[in-house]
Amino acid sequence: MNVLRLDGFDAFVAIVRCGGFRAAAVERGVSSSALSQTINSLEEALGIRLLNRTTRSVSPTEAGQRLLDRLAPALADIRLAIAEVDELRDTPTGTLRINAPAPAVDHLLCPLVFDFMEIYRAVKIEIISDAAVIDIVEQGFDAGVRFGKQLAQDMIAVPLGPSLRYAIVASPDYLERRGTPETPHELVDHDCIRRRFPGGTLVTWRFTDGSEELDVTPEGRLTLNSAHNELQAALAGKGVAHVLDDYAKPHIESGLLVELLVGWRPSLPSWFLYYPNRRLPSAAMRAFLDYMKSYKWDATG
């Protein structure tokens, strides 16, 4: 048998996890052709084909799947061993990969990470903006950001930033044409700009005036899956939008949007950054967690 290289096994796992050579190449910062050559060398050394390749998909062969079942936990142990050695470094190094929804990236992670990187110059950070609920361990992330209720039980969760506030907004032009709702019940007479999660469900708008709680499934002609696009639609006068206060505030202050139903705002939890409790955090991850806990969030605006 020819010489086997550990990076070849790691590349094989990455290709299967990412669903193809191109996505795995982007994740690893190499070319697809280089990754293909790595797998060709691995298959030649093993003397067996590991991947079924078509123009549209890549999947493991029976031999590849058996190898994958053994490799995944073995590589996790190797990463753990490296993390333990990494503890002895004076300066944290390495790469942190974080998966988070776009609003958390826009208003919390980016300001936090930009400042963190000024202090820890040997640490590289990759942030993937994604609203879908994923297995961060399986997908190769060090941490994820979600609401607390979406977290798996085997995760450690740390509050990320202040509590959230949603604003119900519409443009002055829209309100002049359609009138201003005084209670959530009146939203049935309006075009609401709806948002659909990656899993297919529609976002429910929650309200409370302190004595009454009300959940509204909005009705409207326009459905989107991006907070940025919801805001864009509201600014264009296409309806009533339900967006995070961080997105809406500048436009409310400028008069381009009007905030509605202010007395019905519910209190919401913060975002949570979470990471596996069964994995020893690397020195870089521990430095990031410590920095996050002491970060002055008011400075982000």
Rank of each mutant, 00 (worst) to 15 (best):
S254K: 04
L214Q: 04
K149V: 12
L164A: 09
E43Q: 14
G29K: 06
H228Y: 03
L268T: 09
A167P: 01
G20N: 05
T180A: 10
A170G: 07
A131N: 07
F116V: 00
V258R: 12
P218G: 05
N52I: 15
S267P: 00
P198L: 03
A283V: 04
T300E: 08
S294Q: 05
V58Q: 04
L261I: 09
I48R: 09
T38N: 08
G94L: 09
V3I: 14
R28Q: 12
T183K: 06
N229K: 02
L67Q: 02
I168Q: 05
R206H: 08
G220M: 14
R5P: 01
Y174N: 02
L42A: 02
V58W: 07
Y174L: 06
K238P: 08
L68S: 04
Q150G: 13
D90R: 08
L202W: 00
A122S: 11
H185W: 00
L71Q: 04
A11K: 06
V203L: 13
G220Q: 14
A287F: 01
F9D: 01
A83V: 03
I39S: 08
K249E: 14
I156F: 15
A170D: 14
L175H: 06
A24G: 03
D290C: 11
Q139K: 14
G220N: 14
I156V: 14
V188G: 14
P172A: 05
R177G: 11
N277P: 05
R178D: 14
D90H: 03
I168Y: 02
I127H: 03
P218L: 06
R278L: 09
V113K: 00
E182I: 15
A131D: 12
P281T: 04
L80G: 09
R28G: 06
L214A: 03
I134Y: 13
R70S: 12
S267W: 00
V26Y: 13
E87C: 11
G301T: 13
G220A: 11
S211F: 04
F21H: 05
M292W: 04
Y120K: 04
I156H: 15
T54G: 11
V123C: 04
R279Q: 12
G237S: 07
V105M: 03
A299K: 10
T223I: 11
L164Q: 10
A248V: 10
V58D: 07
W297D: 12
E186H: 05
S33E: 15
R206F: 01
N99F: 02
A25Y: 06
D154A: 13
D115W: 01
S211V: 07
D142C: 12
S254M: 05
T208H: 11
R28D: 07
G19M: 13
N229H: 05
L67A: 04
P276K: 07
A102I: 01
A102V: 02
Q139P: 15
P269E: 15
L261Q: 03
G255P: 03
L108R: 04
